[in-house]
Amino acid sequence: MAFLSYLINGLSLGSVYAIIALGYTMVYGIAKMLNFAHGDIMMVGAYVAFFALTSFGIPVIPSVLLSMLATTVLGVVIERLAYKPLRHATSLSVLITAIGVSYFLQNGAQLLWSSSTKVFPAIISNGSVKLFGGELQISYLTLVTIVVCIAVMVCLTLFINKTKTGMAMRACSEDKGAATLMGINVNMIISITFAIGSGIAAIAAVLLCATYPTLSPTLGSMPGIKAFTAAVFGGIGSIPGAFLGGLMLGVIEILAKAYVSTQLSDAIVFAVLIIVLLIKPTGLLGRKLSEKV
């Protein structure tokens, strides 16, 4: 029964990773860049939600929406100011810029909100669902986290597969030049991608802070790296891959903590990543693109 409980906790943590990883993978799939500031955009979302909840006393759902609005705008502005001028630069320049943006956001947060930690309020009641005569307890928070992640995943999949904008995104991810020839405004599609990826990062931020309620300006960096790992694990650029990768990463991390060692858990997570990439270099669901001439 303990195993089942760990598994569910792992899925819950993995859900948070998955939502962040979705943002990473979408941006990579379309803009072909790694937005290393993604975790820090999430951090800003966490602070916005924190102030909305505590200083302004706004209810939970509107606070989350406000936080999403803030990260959406932040993501689009960052893309416009920092990445768009580098559209034709080498990928290394873009990568370094992204790392720069990451530090900019962390230091900006320190300046604005100080580096001392803040405690995120409880947003979901403390109860739990008891199964097997009380042997297995699943907290409401865990359930909400998993359900929200699945909902985000379903909405995103529908959006990408069923809407016209989604189709344009798919076209851009394959061939931007050809997409332009189809009359698709590639810059607009890239902006939309940043908007969606950053917007859902705010959801991840609130879920993460609800589980680990300590706020600091660096709170985004470790989950950011984990989510990036999850995205690579699942096959970067693939949306189901990010979802699967996120969930698996969460489960492996929690199981490693429970059965092996708390200190070694991160090492184990990355060891699994290395093994997966050795066997399947494109990640679990990554596609190998082959061209026919």
Binding site: A171, M182, G183, I184
Partner: peptide, 26 residues
């Protein structure tokens, strides 16, 4: 003004019908 680019550059991961639909995107 439409262009059929060198090397075709069809969207390989999309179906034939989706490619045609993309041609009428605007």
């Amino acid at each position: 003004l439409a262009q059929v680019p060198e090397g075709r550059r069809v969207f390989a991961q999309e179906t034939v019908e989706e490619n045609l639909t993309l041609g009428a995107f605007f």
